[in-house]
Design a protein around this nucleic acid. Sequence first.
RNA 1: GGCUAGGUAGCUCAGCAGGUUAGAGCACGUGACUCAUAAUCACGGGGUCGGGGGUUCGAGUCCCCCCCUCGCCA
Length: 569
Amino acid sequence: MARHLITSAIPYINGIKHLGNLVGSQLPADLYARYLRARGHEVMFICATDEHGTPAELAAAKAGKPVDVYCTEMHEVQAEIAAGFRLSFDHFGRSSSAQNRVLTQHFAKVLAEHGLIREVTEKQMYSVADGRFLPDRYIEGTCPNCGYTSARGDQCDNCTKQLDPVDLINPRSVISGSTDLEMRETKHLFLRQSEMKDKLAAWIDSKTDWPVLTTSIAKKWLFDGDGLQDRGITRDLAWGVPAQFEGAPWQGMEGKVFYVWFDAPIEYIAATQEWADKTGGDWARWWRTDKGAEDVTYTQFMGKDNVPFHTLSFPSTILGSGEPWKLVDYIKSFNYLNYDGGQFSTSRGRGVFMDQALGLLPPDYWRWWLLSHAPESADAEFTWENFQVSVNKDLADVLGNFVSRITKFCRSKFGEALPEGGLWGEREIALIAELATRVREYERLMDEKEVRKAATELRAIWVAGNEYLQAAAPWTVFKTDPAQAAAQTRLALNLVRLYAVLSEPFIPDAAATMLAAMQTEDRSWPGDIRAALEVLPVGHAFATPEVLFRKIADEEREDWQNRFAGTRD
RNA sequence: GGCUAGGUAGCUCAGCAGGUUAGAGCACGUGACUCAUAAUCACGGGGUCGGGGGUUCGAGUCCCCCCCUCGCCA
């Protein structure tokens, strides 16, 4: 038994996430967590909402609510949806927690003591009417290049030219529309990542087993152009972890907070502290190598947009502190999931969002499709046709129908209990051999976090059951040798339990239904396959379950296709 | 423009320490079976492995050039 710390990139508080966000971090993290628990390991699976920053402030203002109230509400919404997808977090925290404030300030202070923070005075656009500094993208004006009137301070959406806010003609605040803007001096803290460059490079180089996607992005940022740049870790905002605090090694940072990318990853640790405070557990044995975490394996899951923060920035914080914090062991990153020929778009409401998905079908349908099509080697694409075909074929026909055919067969010929008699022959021995090979391969792929390939192997395990039934044909054997048919039926019914155990990480609800139907609580992971197929003994009663997975009809699919093509209401 | 990852059967993808007739699922065709959610199982048709050079006895698999897609950055 080993100890595994697993974190999923934390979703931003602003709004409900779409399926692309889900499959990029939370869902594969959950798959891995469930698998490791099933194998008997000790798991700490952490996620949280990322709550600080300007977008949260603006969304709250738009909703007419204080930002803290807004975040509390949205956190509850996201927690509920996560539960709806059966994401099995040990704790779903909040980056606005008191624990994170203390820890973030602690890290900043320690980093400063190690000379890794420097103060930088720069000029930034200030909106007198709004009473605040404006981030570049919250300033709009006319593009000096193409004349587009809604060009943003960082880039013109029309001609794609990169801009500086001062370039804009007639600049105005996106927040209030005010044109009363001026350049003011402001002071910020910068994390001296450039000092950490060599150490980070050596560390990344040592990770030869990481996905190429992860290491190539890290190396790009490390070596491209002038190399790894220092980054500002404070902003002129009210909503966040205050950058001026008691005992801070600097002065004059009043009214400023730490930037989200600095405090968000620290929330992984803080969320574990939140968990500890709630449950009385010990967070330090997961995070402090001087307090029991030296044998922990830490795996992070994230979309590719988050890779720079997790390979460079957060490690700079961890390593730079000089304290014995647990550093990540493996970073599993994902490409993007596109939607029917284009991108999912939160702002334009294009694609399927998590709450909407659950309104259409139960979580297992989505979990199966998303995981079996996870964008590991390249960007992947969601289409309704593909979704319909995969779900109908894999879940309804191959797995669901297998459970259905054998339970109903047994019920009609022998009754609802495992029948007695008969012996296993060559066919059964061959099946056991095939399953043994496949289950070991499935384990290997799950250990390697090869999500798509694991799904393929699992499906092949389901298919093996159908092949066996088709070849053994107990319905024919029954006519001449009922005892032999009984042995075959007994084996197949035991397969249902085995499938439930193996499939649980992908489709937890269906797995629970299958175990309930087999009237067993035995979820033990199969070591010896032969033994695993004798867990349910002769005479063990079962209940013929309802249809495990219903099929998606063509009309339904077309309806959904139309409904989600445009914008979200 | 620079960089990353891709461009393999109609579709979604696997394969690549270079080596006999390039694989899987879906879709399609034929057959088997009738226990089952008109499900399942078997067999089959289908690919000049983006294009062009090169290295090699031999290249989707290595090298060079070009074209296309996606994303990141300037």
